[in-house]
Amino acid sequence: MILIESFIKYLEFEKRSSEHTIASYSCDLEQFILFAKQKDVTHVSDVNRKLVRSWVVYLVGEGMAPKSVGRKITSLKSYFNYLMREGFVEINPAKDISTPKIPKKIPIFVRESEMDLLLDEFPFTSDYEGVRDRLILELLYGVGLRRSELVGLRDNDFDFSLKEIKVTGKYKKQRYIPLNANLLLLIKKYLVVRNREFEIGDNGFFFLTKKGDAVYAKLIYRVVNKYLSSVTTLQKKSPHVLRHSFATSLLNAGADLNAIKELLGHSNLTATEVYTHSSFEKITDIYKQAHPRS
C-alpha cells in the first residue's frame, strides 16, 4: 500500500493540513497497513468492510479510547476517499463504519457550601489584588463566564443603569446577563480601588495585573486554583469548574434548562444537558441518604 505517500502529499500541499494532522494520519494508516498485512491483505483494492471492522474490533479490544478509535476511522475514511478520487478503488470500505460512542464527561463542580465558605468567610486582603481576585471568583461563579470572556471584559461592558453585563463569547457572539445587587457593589468597589491604583489607558480592559496591564489566561487560572485549594479537595480547580458550578447550582435550584443555555452562551441545548447528569447524581445521593426504603 505504497499510495499512502501520495495521500500525505495531498494533505500537505492541497489540503494544507497541519503538521499534527499529517503526523496523526500517517501513524493511523501505518497501523492499519500493519494489521492488514497480518491478514494477508497487501493491496488497497483488496481492503473490504469486513477487514476495517475487524481492525476496529481489535483496537477496542486492546483498550483504546473511543475518541482515538474514532480518529483512526476518520483517517481511514479520508484515505479511501482520496483513493476513490484518484481512481485506485471504486468504493470506500470505511464509509459506513460507525464511530464508537464517546462517553459524556460529567462536569466537575464545587459544592455550594464550599463556595459560600470561600466567598463569605475567606479573609481577602483589602489591597488591589485582594479586591480583584474576589471579584474574579464572584464573576466566574456568579455569572458563569468562560475564562476567555473574563479576560476580554472591558469597562464599557458593564451597564449599571440596566444592571447587566455584556459578554462576548465564542465566534464574537454577544449575550447580556443580569447582575445582582451584591455583584454590582463588588464591581463598583473594585473600580474605585483600581482607578485609585492605576491610570486607565485607552484600551479599557476591566481586569488588570498588579503592574496595570491587561490580565491573561494563566493569571486567571492561578487565581482560581489558589483560592479553590483553600476550600475543596477537587483535583481540578480551574475557571471552567466555576462555570460548571454556576450551571449546576442554577439547575439544582430549579432553573429552566433553556434559560441556563442562554446564560452560558451555548449554541444548542445538547451542550447544556450535560449538567442534568450531575444534578441527577445529587438527587440520587439525597434519596439514598434520606429515604427509609432506599
Rank of each mutant, 00 (worst) to 15 (best):
F13A: 10
R134W: 05
P107C: 00
G254I: 10
E112K: 15
V69N: 08
G144V: 05
I108E: 14
T272M: 08
S75M: 05
L150T: 09
D46S: 15
F80I: 15
E12G: 10
A255D: 07
F246G: 00
G144L: 00
K101P: 06
I286Y: 02
S229W: 04
I22F: 12
H291V: 04
K101T: 13
V167Y: 06
P178W: 03
E129S: 11
Y58F: 14
N195A: 07
F32T: 06
S278A: 03
K95C: 07
S113M: 11
V223S: 13
D46Y: 04
A259H: 02
K72S: 11
K95G: 13
S113D: 12
D133V: 00
S148R: 03
S98T: 10
S75H: 02
E14M: 11
D213T: 14
E197A: 07
L11H: 03
T270D: 09
D285W: 03
K104F: 04
L179H: 06
K172H: 14
A23H: 10
R146W: 03
S54V: 06
D127V: 11
F280M: 13
L264I: 01
A247P: 02
T272D: 02
L186V: 12
I33Q: 15
F109E: 04
E149W: 00
P178H: 09
L59P: 01
Y141C: 13
F35C: 02
F13G: 09
S161D: 12
L137R: 04
R175F: 09
K189I: 06
L140A: 07
T74H: 03
L234R: 11
K173I: 08
K72F: 13
A290E: 05
W55C: 01
Y216C: 04
D285Q: 11
G70C: 04
S238N: 12
E149F: 05
A36N: 12
F88K: 15
Y58N: 13
Y216L: 01
L264M: 00
L117I: 03
L263T: 07
T74N: 06
K218E: 08
R111W: 12
T272Y: 12
G254Y: 10
R194Y: 06
W55P: 02
F280E: 15
N156M: 12
L183Y: 02
R243A: 05
E114K: 06
G130F: 02
H43R: 14
F198P: 05
A259V: 15
L242W: 07
D28P: 13
P93V: 00
L186W: 12
E197G: 06
V57K: 14
V131H: 10
S229H: 08
V41M: 03
A290M: 14
T125R: 02
I286P: 05
E273C: 01
R243Q: 00
G87H: 13
R175W: 00
F160G: 04
D96F: 10
I102Y: 03
L150K: 04
A217F: 13
K170M: 05
P103L: 06
D40P: 02
F205Q: 13
Q174E: 15
D28T: 10
D256N: 11
L34D: 11
R16W: 05
K210M: 12
P100E: 08
S126F: 03
L145D: 11
F122A: 05
I73C: 10
